[in-house]
């Protein structure tokens, strides 16, 4: 079994639209392209990290413009996943 890779990075949520149903669904769709287990948390927040494959849990984080968001991935493609997902947030969900 290959050693587990852990990657983590914090980014600022820049979209005018909160991480509600639409953007959260786009984010989750991207998460599903990776094998790594991905969680999302609000930096310094009191809520536990949310499973990024749960639209409901992503929405429950109440992420809005300016929120610092911590993306963490565990698995062989963790680093690629964190790079892609933080990039997605930094680009306001637009493809590069």
């Amino acid at each position: 079994m290959s050693p587990e890779v852990v990657a983590e990075r914090a980014v600022t949520y820049v979209s005018d639209v909160p991480l509600h149903a639409r953007p959260a669904a786009v984010f989750m769709d991207r998460v599903k392209r990776f094998k790594a287990r991905v969680t999302v948390a609000v930096e310094g927040g009191d809520k536990p990290p949310a499973d990024a494959r749960s639209l409901m849990r992503l929405m429950a984080l109440s992420i809005t413009k300016g929120t610092r968001v911590v993306i963490r991935a565990v698995g062989e493609d963790a680093e690629t996943a964190v790079a892609a997902l933080t990039g997605l947030i930094e680009r306001d969900f637009r493809d590069p």
Partner: peptide, 30 residues
């Protein structure tokens, strides 16, 4: 589990582990 302050979207943790989402209207976040 989720009720957006504007009231346009909600998510319910229901029976059997189901996550049910009701989105009222389209682009109504605006």
């Amino acid at each position: 589990a989720v009720l957006f302050p504007g009231g346009h979207a909600m998510a319910i943790a229901g029976p059997g582990g189901l996550e049910v989402i009701v989105h009222v209207g389209l682009d109504t976040v605006e």
